[in-house]
């Protein structure tokens, strides 16, 4: 008898009507491009606004950690400047993500805050609190004081979605400055401070501890942004390339302040 009562409750006509309307509308939205795009945009905006609120609540707690990071960065800068001021001092010392500053010529740094970031996914992204109104657009690189973080994939007027280097579909051109060799990054989906550097030919000697930077011919990042250090070199004779593991300077779980690299003149995609 109790089951029948439940069935009667479930099969009430108004309830079924609402259910049928919901299913119909859902089918329409997912099968038609314009509504599905709008719903996606709304959900991104809503998600960004909700996470913005949460971020605002957490702000006092994260502020202290950011202060510590900035103090460390300031220390690094002061150290590097003191070395540069010595006539015989090393000039190739890199400072945080920005290398020798030469890399950033022609770029403007737009400071941004991460409102939300995914953790433990295979397609990791984060939402920034800056968007089209701040002159951002898809394809721009994002860095932290530690190194390269990712690329802007989508923008709304006020928010941007950044695909991380730790995203299965993100591959950027990397560079071993010591050897002048280039390769392509990929992420295996397991560790959030390690990338793979692929397609570096076997005839190039690669050593553990070498710096890995963004490549000189990279279109998305300026050349020479620090990415990490070679932590392991494996030889795959069947493929003719190394399988190099890079320990990134950026830790996805501890990003700190972020900067979007906006070129003074917009990037024009090459014509096919």
């Amino acid at each position: 008898m109790r089951e029948l009562k439940w069935l009667n409750l479930i099969f009430r006509v108004p309830l079924l009507w609402v259910l049928a309307q919901g299913v119909s509308l859902y089918l329409y939205i997912i099968s038609t491009p314009a509504p599905s795009e709008t719903v996606k945009r709304w959900s991104t905006d809503l998600s960004a606004a909700a996470h913005g609120l949460l971020q605002w609540i957490r702000r006092p707690f994260t502020a202290m950690a950011e202060v510590e990071q900035l103090q460390q960065l300031n220390t690094d800068l002061l150290e590097a400047l003191s070395e540069l001021s010595q006539p015989q001092g090393p000039a190739d010392g890199s400072i945080g993500a920005w290398g020798t500053f030469e890399a950033l010529q022609g770029y403007q740094l737009v400071p941004a805050r991460a409102l939300y970031q995914t953790l433990y996914l295979r397609s990791n992204y984060l939402l920034l609190d800056k968007g089209g109104r701040d002159g951002l657009y898809p394809g721009l690189g994002v860095i932290s004081p530690m190194g390269a973080v990712g690329l802007i994939a989508e923008t709304t007027a006020t928010y941007s979605m950044v695909y991380s280097l730790f995203h299965r579909d993100v591959h950027i051109a990397l560079y071993l400055p010591k050897q002048g060799a280039m390769g392509l990054s990929s992420w295996g989906g397991t560790t959030f401070n390690r990338l793979k550097l692929e397609y570096v030919p076997l005839y190039i000697p690669v050593e553990v501890g070498e710096e890995v930077w963004t490549a000189p011919n990279a279109t998305l990042f300026p050349k020479g942004i620090r990415v990490g250090k070679v932590s392991q070199v494996k030889t795959d004779f069947t493929g003719g390339f190394y399988s190099i593991e890079v320990q990134t300077y950026t830790d996805w779980h501890r990003l700190g302040p972020l900067y979007v690299l906006r070129p003074h003149s917009p990037i024009v995609p090459p014509t096919p």
Binding site: A20, Y26, I29, T32
Partner: peptide
């Protein structure tokens, strides 16, 4: 006569 769902809704 697609789109699916619109007529029903």
């Amino acid at each position: 006569f697609p789109p699916i769902g619109l007529h029903t809704f």
